[in-house]
C-alpha cells in the first residue's frame, strides 16, 4: 500500500475503484430489458422475485394493525394453491418492530427488517442512531437497514462515513445489516461505486448494500443497480467476500423485477439468484408478481382487485 495513512488511502478511493461511464452503463442495462422471459423461466423468475421481496411499510401513519396485515400478506401473499412463496422479510420503522414480531411470531422464515439510524435523513447524532439500532434489534429485528452519512461523503470525509458504518455493524450484533447509499443524493455513478466499496470494506459477508430509502425522487434504477452489482462482483473476485444487494423504491412491476434479476444473472451469476444475496425493497411489486403468476397459471389477464391490498409507501 502506497498510502501513508488510512485517511490518505481513502482519499484515493476513486482512483482505486475506477470510474463508470454513464452512457455506457445505461446502454448495457437497456439490453437487460430486451431479454424475453417466457414460460417456465418466467414462473421461476416471478416466484424467485416474490421470495426476495422485503415487503415494506414506512409511513408516519403506520399502526400496529397495518403492520399486522402486512405481516399476514408476507406469510401468505396469495391463495396457497398458487404455490407462491413467502416473502423474504417485512420492513418497518423501529417503533413497529415489536408489533411485527407479535404478528409473525418467532417461528417464521419471514424476517423483520427495520430502518434504523434516523431514517431517511440520517441527520441525528451517531449516539442516537446507534441506540436506535440496538433498540430495534432488542425488539426482534433480524435485519437493520441503515443510511450512510451522505453529507460526510460529499464533503470528502470518507473516513467518517466508513467509521459510522463500522459502528453500526457492531451495534447490529447478529442482525444482518443493509447499508443504504441513497444513490439519488450521491448523484453520479462514480460516487455510487466509490460508496459501495467504502461500505463493503467494513460490512460482513452476507450484509447488503442498498440503493435507496424510497423517500427521494429517484430510487432504484437498472443503472445504479448495475453499478452496485459490478462493485459487489469486483469486491468478491478480489476478496472472496460475498456482499448482498437490495434495490429499493421504484420497482413496481413484475416486468421490472425480472429485468433486475436478469442483471443479477448476467453480472453476478447463479450464486446471487436467491434471497440471501438479493432483495427487492418494495410494496406494490408483490401484488403485480402474484398477478402475473396467476396469469401464467390461468392464461387470463387479471384484474387488480383479485389481490389483497398492499402497503403503498414505495
Amino acid at each position: 500500500m502506497l498510502a501513508r495513512s488510512p485517511q490518505a488511502a481513502l482519499q484515493r478511493l476513486f482512483d482505486e475503484v475506477g470510474s463508470v461511464d454513464q452512457v455506457g452503463i445505461e446502454e448495457r442495462v437497456a439490453k437487460y430489458g430486451t431479454r424475453s422471459i417466457k414460460k417456465g423461466a418466467k414462473i421461476w423468475g416471478l416466484k424467485t422475485a416474490v421470495s426476495m421481496v422485503d415487503l415494506t411499510t414506512l409511513e408516519g401513519k403506520d399502526t400496529p394493525g397495518k403492520v399486522a396485515s402486512l405481516c399476514q400478506k408476507a406469510l401468505q401473499p396469495h391463495d396457497a394453491e398458487l404455490g407462491v412463496p413467502q416473502v423474504a422479510a417485512v420492513c418497518v420503522y423501529p417503533a413497529m418492530v415489536k408489533h411485527a414480531r407479535k404478528a409473525l411470531g418467532s417461528d417464521t422464515a419471514v424476517r423483520i427488517a427495520s430502518v434504523a439510524t434516523a431514517f431517511p435523513s440520517g441527520q441525528a447524532p451517531l449516539k442516537t442512531r446507534l441506540a436506535e439500532v440496538k433498540a430495534a434489534v432488542a425488539d426482534g429485528a433480524d435485519e437493520i437497514d441503515m443510511v450512510i452519512n451522505r453529507g460526510a461523503f460529499l464533503a470528502g470525509e470518507f473516513g467518517e462515513v466508513q467509521d459510522e458504518i463500522a459502528a453500526v455493524v457492531t451495534a447490529c450484533g447478529d442482525a444482518t445489516l443493509k447499508v443504504i447509499l441513497e444513490v439519488s443524493e450521491l448523484e453520479t455513478y462514480d460516487n455510487i461505486r466509490a460508496a459501495s466499496f467504502l461500505a463493503m470494506r467494513v460490512i460482513r459477508p452476507g450484509d447488503f448494500i442498498k440503493t435507496s430509502t424510497g423517500k427521494t425522487s429517484l430510487n432504484a434504477t437498472l443503472g445504479n443497480n448495475q453499478v452496485m452489482l459490478e462493485a459487489i462482483r469486483d469486491f468478491y473476485l478480489d476478496t472472496g467476500i460475498p456482499i448482498a444487494m437490495k434495490p429499493a423504491g421504484g420497482i413496481r412491476t413484475a416486468k421490472q423485477a425480472l429485468t433486475f434479476l436478469v442483471a443479477v444473472k448476467e453480472t453476478l451469476g447463479d450464486a446471487w439468484l436467491n434471497n440471501n444475496r438479493y432483495r427487492f425493497g418494495a410494496s406494490s411489486l408483490l401484488n403485480d408478481l402474484v398477478r402475473q403468476l396467476e396469469k401464467e397459471k390461468t392464461g387470463a389477464y387479471q384484474a387488480p382487485y383479485y389481490f389483497s391490498e398492499a402497503a403503498e409507501s414505495y
Binding site: A41, K42, T48, Y236, L237, I241, L261
Partner: peptide, 24 residues
C-alpha cells in the same frame, strides 16, 4: 471477515443453468 485469498481457491462466478431462459 474472510482473509483475502488465504489459501482458498480464487473466487469465481457461476454462470450456470439455475435460471435457464425458455426459447423465445
Amino acid at each position: 471477515r474472510l482473509a483475502a485469498r488465504s489459501g482458498r481457491p480464487a473466487p469465481e462466478l457461476i454462470f450456470g443453468d439455475l435460471w435457464e431462459f425458455d426459447p423465445a
